[in-house]
Amino acid sequence: MSRAVRRFAIQAGLALALGLLFAFAFINARENLRALGIPTSFAFLHDVAGFSINQSLISYSPLSTYGRALIVGLLNTVLVSVLSGIFATLIGFAAGFARLSRNLALSRLAAAYVGIVRNLPLLLQILFCYAIVLAPLPGPAESYHFAGFVLNNRGFFTPALSYPHFWPAIDWPLFDPALNRFNVVGGWRLSPEACALILALSLYTGAYIAEIVRAGVQSVARGQSEAAAAMGLSAAQARRLVIRPQAMRVILPPLISQYLAMTKNSSLAAFVGFADLMQVSGTILNQTGAALQVMALVMALYLALSLATLAVTRLYERRLRWGGRT
């Protein structure tokens, strides 16, 4: 028997053994679940959920299905991730450049921010943000009003478009004890839970992005800016035409991993009562008992989110690759 054939046989044998083991694990798990009377199908997704969700981007009521509840959770995760991503990028680039600044106070401040935030557990920061978001806000009766916006400890309310008589009309948020003595009626709301989560995730991820930006800019050899100056480019031109394109190529890959990590970190939302994918799926799991299906579904959804993030950022990465080495 030749060496190639023997090696192939060994590989094939291993692959087969692995496949058999996985098949055994799958069948074994399914049989055991059946024996315990635990549901093994996805049929529960069409059942009525029965529970309420306080923040939703699509219409949802307790009479909606578990499947729809899951979509509400998914969209909430996307909402928080996108908003946090934008703020984290702004904070991160600002802090990254501040660290490189010749202004000592500014660079020390940025270094302190990065040092503190990166070295504290995220969950602690989220709980802290929730406490500091809630503490200064007044109850609905003493809300802050500003140009139709309302802010109180039930959330941040913005005017929203509605279509009461086909024509679009503005739905103003309003606190009127005659309508509802507890809460603001109308408008679109961002809950304090969402605000706290976005704040914490932006600050946390921003600190990592700041380090990535600093490292990226510093990775461009000093000779590059000296050469640019020698060619007669102004400092601003050198930054825009020479430093930035080269730095961005270094910054982008770790930046993308930060976005991915942030999306996954948003699953800590349940601790501050925000109805994200993880929180909603937890409730569904508990009510249906379909632990394996719900977990598999949630894993698939997070994976899909990450892959979508990757696809979008890869487009940008490819644009940066014009010319030069890759």
Binding site: F51, S52, I53, N54, L127, R154, N180, N183, S191, E193, A270, F271, V272, G273, A275, Q279, G282, T283
Partner: peptide, 13 residues
């Protein structure tokens, strides 16, 4: 109508 605010633990709630 009612707005539920659902927490992972009773302590946070």
């Amino acid at each position: 109508k009612m707005e539920p605010v659902v927490f992972a633990t009773a302590d946070e709630a």
